[in-house]
Structure formats: structure tokens, C-alpha cells
Simulated scan of single mutants.
Amino acid sequence: MNIQNITALASQLQSLGFDNFGSLLLKRICFKPDNFYLNHKIAKDKELLEFRFYFERQRESDAYMLLYYDVTLQQKNIFEELMIAGINIADLEKQMTTINWMSAFNIDERKKLDPNDKTTWEVEAKVESVVESLAALELDEKGKTVAAALKVKFWFGTPYHEIFGSISAVKNKSDISQRFYFSENSSGITVDEAYRFLQNKWLEKQLQLKKKQADSTSESENDETNSTTGSGLLKKRRINSSLKGKRNKTNQD
């Protein structure tokens, strides 16, 4: 095993602000995959940074390299809304906390089933209730994001992936993301640098949104003004036509 390579990668990550990655790298590299990802979260004030590192094995040297990482700045807590599609999010999250999901997804487990004894199928009833609530959330645009986040929070690392495949990620519209690449001659973007970049990107997005709203308001006001002016001109034309008709009638008399 190329311990030097693992140590070098861990040192590289540490220089960027990510500590104690050595064992995480070791556990993945020992399986000698062609590539792999590492996920990591860092709290910044009331915001959350989500990192996803991509490593790839080099065929020439058999060593692994960090090629890039994706980072997402979560500006808004997606669980802060109380009700979505008739589902109480706090209650659903609490309900999911009470279930041992590792055991729930162990579909090969054999145990006694007695239709008259609810305790023998109580867990499965809870699971069904949660799944139905998640399905209801996924019918709503905002609910899709919450449902995906809850699945990742409680089902990541369970046999869910073996049974149903990967969990489809739904991006929260308030999130800001960026990919940062690495090259042999660059040290890479640190945590703080990535955070400042995403904050600036978020601020730019807010300014553009405000400008768009202001332009939209201005256009609406212009439309109303034009509509009022048009109505006034039309009314004036009708009055003039009426007066002209009366004059013609008088001349004929």
C-alpha cells in the first residue's frame, strides 16, 4: 500500500483546512477503486458548507490525486418551514429519528409475525407512514428538496442503496454551489477562500434578483400608465367623434 500517497493527500487536505482525513482515505484506497468521493460538512456561523471531494487513481503511478471538490453553501435551513403539502416537517423528522433504519433496510432479517400482535409489525408500520409522508412531500416543489434531504440524513450508509439505488438529489434554490479544480502547480482553494467566494456569489445573486424585481415593477407601472393613457386618448377620440357628428347634423338642418 502506498502510505506515502495517502499521507500526502491528507496533508494536502489539511493545508486547505480539512483535518483528520487520513483514516478516511485509507479505508477507501485499500479497496483500490478507480475513483471515489469523500463528503464533508463544515458549519460557518449559521450557514453550512457541504464539500464533496473527487479522487482518481493515476494509471501510470497507481497513486491517487485530488482532482476537484464541489462545495455548496446552504443559506437557508430547508427544515425551517413547519408545513409542506400538509406534512408537518418537524414531526416527520422526529418520527424518522425513532426508527433504526439500518435494521429497517435489512430485508433478509427473519422474525416472528403475528397479525394480532402489533409489536411484531409496529416498526414496519412506522416505516410505511414515513414513506407515505415522503411521497406526499415529493409532489410539492419545495417538498422535493426536504424529502431528499431527509432521505440523505437518515438513509445514507444503509442498505437502501442496494435495494433502491442512489437517492436523487434535489438542489435547494437558495443554495450556492461551485466546483474548484486542482492542478500539480497549484495549492488549491482553502475552506475560507471557498466560503468568501460563495458568499460573494450569493450576494451577487441577491443583487441581480432585486434588480430583476425592480425592472419588473417598472415595466408593470409603464404598462398601467400606457393603458391609462390609451384609455384617455380613446375616450377623447370618442368625444371628438360625437361632437363632429352633432355639428354635421346641425349643418344638415
Rank of each mutant, 00 (worst) to 15 (best):
D34S: 14
L234V: 06
G165Q: 01
S187F: 12
F31Y: 12
Y64S: 06
K144D: 03
F79N: 05
E219C: 05
S241I: 09
A63W: 03
M1A: 12
L48T: 13
F105K: 00
G143F: 07
V71M: 10
K32G: 01
A214G: 04
S183F: 15
K27I: 09
Q199G: 03
E122G: 04
T225Q: 12
N248I: 13
G17T: 02
N248Y: 14
K112C: 08
S227P: 04
L66F: 08
G157R: 08
D62C: 14
A104E: 01
E221Q: 00
F51T: 09
K151A: 09
S174F: 10
A214M: 02
K173Q: 14
T158L: 01
A104D: 01
K112D: 13
N20E: 12
L92G: 10
F79Q: 07
E93H: 11
M65K: 10
Y160W: 11
R28S: 03
K76S: 13
T190M: 07
F180P: 01
K151P: 05
G245L: 04
G22C: 01
K173Y: 15
I163N: 06
T7V: 09
Y68L: 09
N116T: 04
S242N: 12
S220Y: 04
D45A: 12
R52V: 11
K212G: 08
W121S: 06
E224Q: 07
A214V: 04
H40K: 03
L139V: 11
F21R: 05
K76W: 03
I84N: 04
N20I: 09
T229G: 01
Y68W: 08
I107A: 08
N77Y: 01
S242F: 11
D114C: 04
